[in-house]
């Protein structure tokens, strides 16, 4: 088994698609870094002057109309509370303050999880594509049949391919995350601040990295499973894209209460160690009025861990059964 795994890993790294995929991931990670630079960049002197002018104009307006605006706001809030006791128009925060005018300084510990989040999705997608191509090529060239005349124990062959696709990309993923984090540290140190980065911050980032490694491994395994079930790289990519567009795009938007059972929300929750999502709660009042409010819901880490674990396990088993029984023609 270890011999087969070694061979599959050699083949994985010898493939041109793997190299192209890795290069493209590096390139896009570079672009993400550029976005980090842009996002963390403080305002220029000219931009700050413009902001200051707008702030002063707002202050003048407040001095003239502030009292009236505040009264109107409170009246509106009181009106709203007749039907919703929790209605809050945030009237106390209407007065212009400079903190909310200028661009806040980027803080490494606060911004880094979001920056890393983008990189995680990039790596998951790239590894899925590489893995689907890894097995899809075997079916489309017919070399899988040749391979099985050398090693007819199909479950071993299948396991070696799944394991190779799951473990092969991991060193690269770890190195990329480390390099990206280091580069973000330098960029934010230059444009914002790294002050306040505690051991807790690093522990959180380490946790995110660890969960990302597991997710990348799962993406590799899924690429092989889907590629093997569909027997073609393009079909596997097509299914992934169709899922993203139809299920995560159209379906998730119109049936947002089903988000806990969709892939993207669970991946978010897995990476962030729990997340929230919003649903529209619509009720018909006693007066016959129909009202919808947006409500925040929690998606726990435990839920997403179980969801992703079961999904991966089921697909791997289904893939194994089909691979074992399939006629190779």
């Amino acid at each position: 088994m270890s011999r087969l795994l070694k061979v599959e890993l050699r083949r994985l790294f010898a493939r041109r698609l793997t190299l192209i995929g890795a290069a493209a991931t590096l390139l896009i990670a570079g672009l993400l870094l550029l976005a980090v630079w842009q996002d963390s960049k403080p305002l220029s002197a000219e931009e700050e002057r413009q902001q200051r002018l707008q702030f002063e104009a707002a202050q003048k307006d407040w001095q003239v109309n502030g009292t009236r605006m505040l009264e109107e706001c409170r009246a509106g809030e009181a009106q709203a509370r007749t039907s919703d006791p929790n209605a809050d128009f945030a009237c106390d925060q209407m007065e212009p303050r400079w903190e909310s005018w200028g661009k806040p300084e980027t803080v490494f510990g606060e911004a880094m999880p979001d920056f890393l989040h983008g990189l995680v999705y990039l790596m998951v997608f790239a590894v899925f594509l590489i893995a689907a191509g890894f097995i899809g090529a075997e079916f489309s060239t017919g070399s899988i049949g040749n391979w099985l005349t050398f090693e007819p124990r199909r479950l071993r062959v299948y396991a070696s391919k799944v394991l190779a696709a799951a473990t092969g990309p991991l060193p690269g993923a770890v190195v990329l995350m480390v390099l990206f984090t280091a580069a973000c540290w330098l960029v934010i140190g230059q444009n914002g601040t790294t002050a306040g980065t505690t051991s807790g911050t690093w522990a959180d980032l380490g946790g995110t990295a660890g969960r990302t490694v597991v997710l990348v491994a799962a993406a590799g395994a899924m690429g092989v499973v889907i590629g093997s079930l569909l027997r073609h790289t393009a079909a596997a990519i097509g299914v992934a894209m169709a899922y993203l567009v139809i299920v995560e795009g159209i379906f998730a938007y119109s049936l947002n209460k089903l988000q806990p059972w969709l892939l993207r929300a669970n991946i978010d929750s897995w990476i962030k160690h729990g997340t929230t999502y919003y649903v529209e709660d619509c009720v018909t009042g006693p007066d016959g009025s129909y009202r919808c409010d947006s409500a925040e819901r929690v998606l726990t880490f435990g839920h997403s861990a179980a969801y992703l674990g079961v999904l991966v396990a089921v697909l791997v088993v289904v893939g194994a059964v089909v691979f074992r029984r399939r006629d190779i023609t």
Binding site: R3, L4, R10, R11, A14, T141, G142, G145, N146, E151
Partner: peptide, 19 residues
């Protein structure tokens, strides 16, 4: 049926290693 992007030798090396 072999991997078209690999050399003949590479294809054989992979099979040899597998067995």
């Amino acid at each position: 049926k072999f991997f078209p992007a690999f050399s003949g030798r590479k294809n054989l090396e992979l099979l040899a290693e597998a067995i």
